[in-house]
C-alpha cells in the first residue's frame, strides 16, 4: 500500500498541506479533486517521493519512500507529469522505451513488443517512428501515458504497482479523455492502483472508486465516490453552486439556470 500519513508541508511560511492522510490500495482508482492551489500537486509529489514532508510520513508497503532505492521504487510506481519537458527529437517509441529503464533489461524482441502494445493501448499505433516534438499536445500526453504504462509492466504479480497522474486528461479532446480514463480503469482492474488529479467531478464519478476532496491544504472529505460526490460537498469545495442531478451527473447550478432562461 502507498500512503501518506498526517503529512504537513510548509513553504515560505505558508502551509501547503496540513495533516493530510491518504491511502492508495490495489485495484482502486482514487481521484483527487480540489480547486486551484489546494495542494493536489504537492500531495502527488509527496506520494511520488519527490519531496520530503515536513511532518508525517509517506511510505510504500510500510517502508518510508526515502528509504527505497530509486530504481526499486521506479519499478513500483510511475508518475505522469502535467507538463512535458522533452524538446529533443527522440522517436516516440524511444520515449516509451525509456519507461523500461528501471528494469535494467537488454533491449530486444520482448521489449519492442511491450513498447508497441503500450503505444497501441493509448491509440498511438503507427506513430512509433515519429519525432516526439512533431506530435500534437494531446498525442504527446498519450505518448507519456504509454511510457508510464510501460514502466509498470512485467513486475511480479504479487506486488501492486502505483500510477500517479497529474491531470492526465488536461490536454486531451473529449474522446481521448475517456479513452485515457478507460485505459486507467483497465490498469486498475488488472491489479494496479491509480491516483489521478482530475478537474471534472463527472470523470471522478464515472471512473473512480475512491475520491478525496482537498481544499487549502486540508482534506475536506474522503471515501467511496458515491458517498463523497454530493451537491453539498462539491459546492463547498469549489465555492460555487454545484448540483448532482439524474444518475449522478454533476452540473453547476448557474449553468442550469442560464440554460433554462435561454430556452424560454
Amino acid at each position: 500500500m502507498l500512503e501518506a500519513l498526517h503529512v504537513g508541508v510548509r513553504c515560505d511560511g505558508r502551509r501547503l498541506l496540513d495533516d493530510v492522510s491518504i491511502q492508495l490500495r490495489p485495484r482502486r482508482f482514487h481521484a483527487l479533486l480540489g480547486p486551484n492551489g489546494a495542494g493536489k500537486s504537492t500531495l502527488l509529489q509527496i506520494l511520488a517521493g519527490d519531496r520530503e514532508p515536513d511532518e508525517g510520513k509517506a511510505q510504500l508497503d510500510g517502508v518510508a519512500l526515502s528509504s527505497w532505492p530509486l530504481s526499486a521504487l521506479a519499478r513500483r510506481r510511475a508518475v505522469l507529469p502535467q507538463h512535458d519537458n522533452l524538446r529533443f527529437a527522440l522517436r516516440v517509441d524511444d520515449v516509451v522505451r525509456l519507461g523500461r529503464l528501471p528494469w535494467d533489461e537488454a533491449p530486444g524482441e520482448a521489449q519492442s513488443r511491450l513498447v508497441e502494445q503500450c503505444l497501441n493501448s493509448v491509440g498511438l499505433a503507427g506513430m512509433a517512428s515519429r519525432a516526439y516534438p512533431s506530435l500534437s499536445g494531446g498525442e504527446r500526453a498519450r505518448a507519456q501515458l504509454a511510457r508510464v504504462l510501460a514502466q509498470l509492466s512485467g513486475g511480479e504479480e504479487t506486488s501492486t504497482t502505483y500510477l500517479l497522474l497529474d491531470e492526465p486528461t488536461a490536454n486531451l479532446d473529449l474522446a481521448h479523455q475517456h479513452h485515457c480514463l478507460r485505459r486507467l480503469r483497465q490498469f486498475v482492474d488488472q491489479g494496479g492502483a491509480v491516483l489521478a488529479i482530475l478537474h471534472d467531478p463527472n470523470q471522478a464519478s464515472c471512473y473512480a472508486d475512491d475520491v478525496t476532496l482537498i481544499k487549502t491544504g486540508r482534506i475536506q472529505c474522503s471515501g467511496k465516490a458515491a458517498d463523497v460526490l454530493t451537491s453539498a460537498a462539491l459546492s463547498t469545495l469549489y465555492d460555487t453552486d454545484l448540483r448532482v442531478i439524474d444518475q449522478g451527473w454533476i452540473v453547476p447550478g448557474g449553468a442550469i439556470e442560464t440554460a433554462n432562461s435561454r430556452l424560454k
Binding site: 511520488a48 519527490d50 532505492p69 530509486l70 530504481s71 526499486a72 521504487l73 521506479a74 519499478r75 510506481r77 510511475a78 508518475v79 507529469p81 512535458d84 519537458n85 522533452l86 524538446r87 529533443f88 527522440l90 524511444d94 520515449v95 525509456l98 519507461g99 529503464l101 528501471p102 514502466q151
Partner: peptide
C-alpha cells in the same frame, strides 16, 4: 547514455525512472 536520455524528459521524470 540511458540516464542522459531519461534526463531529456526532465529532472523529476528521470528521478521517477530511478535515475539519481
Amino acid at each position: 547514455s540511458q540516464a542522459l536520455d531519461a534526463l531529456l524528459l526532465g529532472e523529476a521524470e528521470a528521478r521517477h525512472l530511478g535515475v539519481n
